[in-house]
Design a protein around this nucleic acid. Structure first.
Length: 369
RNA sequence: CGGGGUGUAGCAUAAUGGUAGUGUACGCGGUUUGGGACCGUGUGGUCCGGGUUCGAUUCCCGGCUCCCCGACCA
């Protein structure tokens, strides 16, 4: 890509209406454009980063048998009524709207019910299980308060995977595989060192759900960690979990963290509520087991910026940098030098190296800054 | 949703009850040229609605916006 033609250029100053480091830097560098509170567009540079993060996740999900598909943003109420999650009292982040004929619609904030409804149409026998599907979907959530730049928006990209099983044991096995896949993902994203698997807080599902928390000043959660023992406990479940694990509070250090992934087992709960069954080997109807696995793709991007930036700006890990090479062409008035750098640019391109070529007529200082 | 703040040019900032200034960005001309260079010149602005006033960007009321704290967060 020739930088002279690149859509978006850098800005010298941070926007006054952003205090979050990730938003300030991403806007200054021209990776995102703010549309409104909690709603950001991704420019060509930002999209390249997003696509690379997605590709890493995609590879790891495929490696454990996940199959990519895409559900819909428009959601019919019926699908959610069976589990009680259409109610605004139960789910307070719904965006709801209406069709021209007056019928209500919701905009997808999560997709468990949507997946289960669809799966119910395809799963008949134990031979159809297990099955694991995932998507990269724009989630729409009517958050009371958006904050922290791209880390908590009303519209954001999430990878959500759903696995369906014939037995608890099979679900448990797969769940553990996903944990390992997630660890590889965060490793590849450059967050591995500071990302911990923790028991999640939040009521009835605590024992069946885990969060992936990355130590990050800009995060919303508090984690108690023991780095040497590689143990981390969410503040919300500190008392219960620490006794269960057998570690004393004073062995743990309190740090702020951002939730970069959340996985949980529904067991047969959704299957029962939505009547999703399969025939077992004896011809008997059984409820399917469900587990689901999320990664906030755009949030992860924000966390990377927050954690790895220095006083001069964003530092992308090589795996997700928008380009592998930034070729800086100087002396644009000297034709022989222009020809020379053009040659380097073309040969890198021919070799399939992703290269951003600064061919602008500008001084060195400006290009490098 | 409760509380606090905010709103001036593309961006960042200043000032004022009486012609809104500067930087940057952008256009043009020129001097430069290995870490955001300089000179000249030009384009461009007071969130929306109402009120007070001879006159409101400024004061008052309402709305909206954005940010922060809290609450919320499968």
């Amino acid at each position: 890509m020739r930088q002279s033609k690149l859509f978006t250029k850098t800005r010298r100053e941070s926007p006054a209406d952003e205090t979050a480091k990730n938003a300030q830097l991403l806007i200054r560098a021209g990776f995102v454009y703010k549309v409104m509170a909690g709603v950001y567009a991704y420019t060509p540079l930002g999209l390249r980063v997003l696509d690379k993060i997605k590709q890493i996740i995609r590879e790891e999900m495929n490696a454990i048998g996940g199959q990519e598909l895409i559900m819909t943003s428009l959601q019919p109420p019926e699908v959610w009524q069976s589990t009680g999650r259409w109610s605004d009292e139960v789910v307070d982040v719904w965006f709801k709207t209406k069709l021209k004929d007056g019928n209500e619609l919701g905009l997808g904030w999560s997709h468990e019910e949507a997946i289960m409804t669809m799966m119910g149409n395809y799963i008949n026998s134990y031979k159809d299980l297990p099955i694991s599907v995932y998507q990269f979907q724009t989630k729409l959530r009517n958050e009371l308060r958006a904050k922290s730049g791209i880390m908590r928006g009303r519209e954001f990209v999430m990878k959500d995977m759903y696995s369906l099983h014939a037995s608890k044991a099979d679900m448990d096995d797969y769940y553990d595989k996903v944990i390992e896949a997630y660890k590889r993902i965060y490793q590849r994203l450059g967050l591995g060192e500071d990302t911990y698997v923790t028991f999640a807080g939040g009521g009835a599902f605590t024992k069946f759900s885990h969060e992936f928390q990355t130590i990050c000043e800009a995060g919303e959660d508090v984690l108690y960690v023991n780095k040497a023992k590689n143990i981390a406990v969410n503040e919300e479940v500190l008392d219960d979990a620490s006794s269960e694990i057998g570690i004393a509070k004073n062995e743990l250090e309190s740090v702020k963290s951002a939730e970069v992934g959340n996985i949980f087992k529904f067991g047969t709960e959704k299957g029962e509520q939505m009547n999703v069954t399969y025939k077992d080997a004896d011809g008997e109807d059984k409820f399917v087991y469900l587990a689901s696995y999320g990664i906030g793709v755009t949030r992860v991007m924000g966390v990377v910026v927050e954690k790895l930036a220095d006083e001069k700006g964003i530092i992308w890990p090589e795996n997700i940098a928008p380009y592998k090479v930034h070729l800086v062409g100087l002396n644009r008035e000297d034709e022989s030098i222009v020809d020379f750098t053009d040659g380097i640019y073309n040969s890198l391109k021919d070799k399939g190296v992703e290269v951003l070529y600064d061919d602008r007529e500008a001084r060195v200082g400006e290009k490098i800054c």
